[in-house]
Design a protein around this nucleic acid. Structure first.
Length: 262
DNA sequence: CTTGTGTCCTGTAGGC
DNA sequence: TGCCTACAGGACACAA
């Protein structure tokens, strides 16, 4: 759908969506480049272009990209990229919190240091109980917050941290350093499981469904959520008589079952 | 270094 | 109906 196409034009509808360089230079440098490959690192999407350039997208809370035919642009289109072969890539972002950057692959800018500092992918062998244990050791912050730290568990967000903690039977407010070795190992395994399942189900489309996998289709992972966004529901663990609670941790909601998550 | 809080932005849901 | 507040898939700057 994208690989092999050449960028013919770039139209920035919302300048603050472009992280760097400045929108004008962003457009100038991207125009004429060819998409050689696609990639992902944590929550960042990568278009590897020729001349050693990467176009890097982050969808934040409500963004998505779609490759469409020319014509009426979708609502909330913030950046429009005209491609060879009569296609248009639209970066759609209602809340305008997402960003796109253009970077030299061998010299990423400061603006992308968050991406550079990310830890191992939860799906990789490097993400194991040894890694997680080393990151949680000595920490007093709630384990929920530490899992949201992309330097510790890249790609994890509010949904998947809740689900992994439930699966591991670990309460979200537990200080990171208080987990036993067995709990850490369990949590690492649970995170792998949750992230793999989410990828298999093409992501989680919640509520108003603004999240969309590329191509505007909804994901299906929301059907498999055990606790997230299920406040008041009976705990899904067989035999448990508890209900799903919602609390605020660090200004964000956490869902969990107090009876099976110690 | 760690930790908690506020901010960016827009839209929707729910209370009154 | 309209106005107000709370909340939403995230990350970062900043203060203590």
């Amino acid at each position: 759908m994208l690989v092999g196409r050449r960028i013919r034009s770039v139209a920035v509808q919302r300048p603050d969506i472009v992280g760097c360089p400045e929108p004008e230079e962003f457009s100038r440098r991207a125009t004429g480049r060819k998409v050689e490959n696609l990639g992902r690192r944590g929550k960042y999407l990568l278009l590897h272009l020729d001349r050693n350039l990467d176009m890097v997208f982050h969808m934040r809370l409500s963004g998505h990209i779609q490759v469409r035919e020319p014509g009426e642009p979708p609502p909330y289109e913030r950046v429009r990229i005209g491609l060879s072969g009569k296609r248009v890539l639209s970066f759609v972002e209602p809340r305008a919190l997402g960003r796109v950057w253009l970077a030299d692959r061998t010299d990423y800018p400061d603006a992308l240091r968050g991406m550079q500092r990310m830890g191992p992918e939860p799906t990789s062998p490097e993400f194991n109980s040894r890694w997680l244990g080393s990151r949680l050791a000595g920490r007093k912050a709630p384990v929920k917050n530490l899992l949201l730290d992309q330097r510790i568990c890249c790609g994890a967000g509010n949904i998947y941290t809740d689900e992994a903690l439930f699966r591991a039977g670990v309460g979200p407010t537990r200080p990171g350093g208080s987990l036993t070795r067995a709990e850490v190992a369990n949590l690492a395994r649970s995170m792998k499981h949750v992230i793999r399942a989410a990828i298999r189900h093409c992501g989680t489309t919640l509520g108003d469904g603004r999240y969309r996998r590329p191509g505007t289709q909804a994901g299906s992972n929301q059907k498999y959520l055990k606790v997230h966004a299920r406040e008041g529901a009976d705990c899904p663990r067989p035999g448990c008589t508890g209900t799903v609670h919602r609390i605020r941790i660090g200004n964000r909601s956490s869902y969990f079952c107090p009876q099976c998550q110690a």
